[in-house]
Simulated assay, not measured.
Amino acid sequence: MAKVLLRRLTPVLVAATAAAVLVGCSTSEPPTTTAESVSATESTAPSVTLTPALDHLHGLHLGADGTVLAGSHTGLVAIAADGRTTRIGTSDDDFMGLAGVPGTDHLFASGHPGPSSSAPNPLGLMDSTDGGHTWTPTSLTGEVDFHALATDGKVLVGFDGTTGLLVSTDVGASWSAGAPLAAAAFAVTDGGVWAATAEGLQHSTDTARTFTAVPGAPRLTLLSAASDGSLWGVDSHGVAWCSRTGQTWVQHTVVGPVEALLAVDADTAYAATSRQLYTIE
Rank of each mutant, 00 (worst) to 15 (best):
D105M: 06
P102M: 07
G124I: 11
P137G: 07
A119M: 12
W135D: 00
S117L: 10
P113Q: 01
D105V: 12
G100R: 06
P122C: 12
A119T: 10
D92T: 15
A109S: 10
T129Q: 07
T134H: 08
W135M: 01
G114N: 00
G124F: 08
L123R: 14
L98Q: 11
G97W: 10
P115E: 00
P120K: 12
F95K: 03
V101G: 04
G103H: 04
D94W: 12
D93Q: 13
D105E: 04
G103P: 06
D130W: 13
L98W: 12
S117Y: 12
A109C: 08
G132R: 00
G111M: 03
F108W: 13
G100Y: 08
L125N: 09
M126H: 10
G114A: 03
M96F: 14
V101K: 08
G111N: 04
D92L: 13
S117I: 13
A119Y: 07
P115W: 05
T104V: 12
L123Y: 14
T104F: 09
D92W: 07
G124V: 12
H112P: 02
D130K: 12
H106S: 04
L125W: 07
D94I: 14
D94E: 09
T134E: 00
H112C: 02
H133E: 03
T104Q: 04
L98D: 08
T134V: 05
G132T: 03
V101S: 05
